[in-house]
């Protein structure tokens, strides 16, 4: 309870800081919106030419894309401190974290709350609404639950990736851009249901990095193509991915304390 209160305190101070620069905040938010709007336009114009892709219609693709975008933006908003962790290590700011009597993860999470991602979230919500109206999904309690599970699972998986990135910063600060393959890359892949990329990709995203568990399988359930309850709870199962990420982070902190760089 105390932890949550402290976290909210962090969030509130972050928001107050951002609001000191309202124009800049607004522009960044618009920028976030435009970047993902471009991606959306890409999908839109592809469907001007093609009516379907591997059995999925435009509105179904939008549904899937918007959920992934929403998950990604949420994770970015919450775990931005981990996403920009290299700066914290470089500036020595992490030393400050270590001389305070609170959990390191909480402090790093609190160090940055990226409200500008609201632009992306807005974009995702609009797309999602459009997708819902246009697709013929018959909504039920279980489907709404599935959606909720997708949001939780997806945010957890993306956050875990940011954790891994941050943990690697303890070992090297060089060339970590490659982690974008997994974060931005996943968002890029997630535009379309993962099955369109072929069997191998589906296997990889099922068993190695569980993107498919938060995107493809629950989508099938929502679209009514699968009715088994397993498809509904798979997004929650994807949370397993957080465990190795957490262990790596803990190991990284230990190494930092022994190397100090």
């Amino acid at each position: 309870m105390k932890t949550i209160r402290l976290y909210l305190h962090y969030v509130s101070i972050n928001v107050r800081c951002i609001m000191q620069y309202k124009t800049s905040f607004l522009l960044s938010a618009i920028g976030q919106f435009l970047v993902s709007f471009n991606v959306f336009l890409g999908v839109f114009f592809m469907f001007q030419r093609f009516s379907k892709v591997e059995g999925f219609t435009y509105s179904e693709v939008l549904l899937c894309f918007s959920v992934v975008l929403l998950e990604f933006a949420l994770a970015e908003m919450i775990a931005r401190g981990f996403d920009t962790f290299s700066g914290m290590v470089k500036s020595g700011e992490f030393d400050r974290v270590l001389v305070r009597p609170q959990n390191e993860i909480l402090q790093v999470l609190g160090s940055k709350f990226e409200l500008t991602r609201i632009g992306r979230i807005l974009q995702a919500v609009v797309m999602f609404a459009y997708g819902i109206v246009k697709s013929n999904v018959v909504w039920s309690v279980s489907k709404v639950c599935t959606l909720l599970f997708m949001l939780i699972g997806g945010t957890v998986v993306f956050t875990a990736l940011f954790f891994i990135y941050a943990a690697l910063c303890f070992f090297t600060l060089d060339g970590l851009e490659f982690m974008n393959v997994f974060t931005d890359g996943a968002r890029e892949l997630g535009k379309y249901p993962l099955s369109i990329y072929g069997k191998k990709m589906l296997l990889f995203t099922t068993f190695v990095i569980p993107y498919a568990l938060i995107q493809y399988y629950p989508l099938l359930y929502i679209l009514g193509r699968q009715t088994s309850i397993v498809y509904m709870v798979l997004p929650l199962a994807a949370c397993w991915f957080f465990i190795p990420a957490l262990l790596l982070w803990k190991y990284g902190v230990r190494c930092y304390q022994s190397s100090g760089s």
Binding site: K2, R5, L6, H9, Y10, I13, R16, C17, Q20, Y21, S91, G92, E93, D95, R96, V99, R100, P101, Q102, Q107
Partner: peptide, 27 residues
Amino acid sequence: VVFGQRSQLWWDVPVIDSFELLKDIYS
């Protein structure tokens, strides 16, 4: 700990706000 070359205050909000956060951090 005071690191002379680094700041622990939040740059853009009144100093008292940083103090209040520290109050919660140190319970």
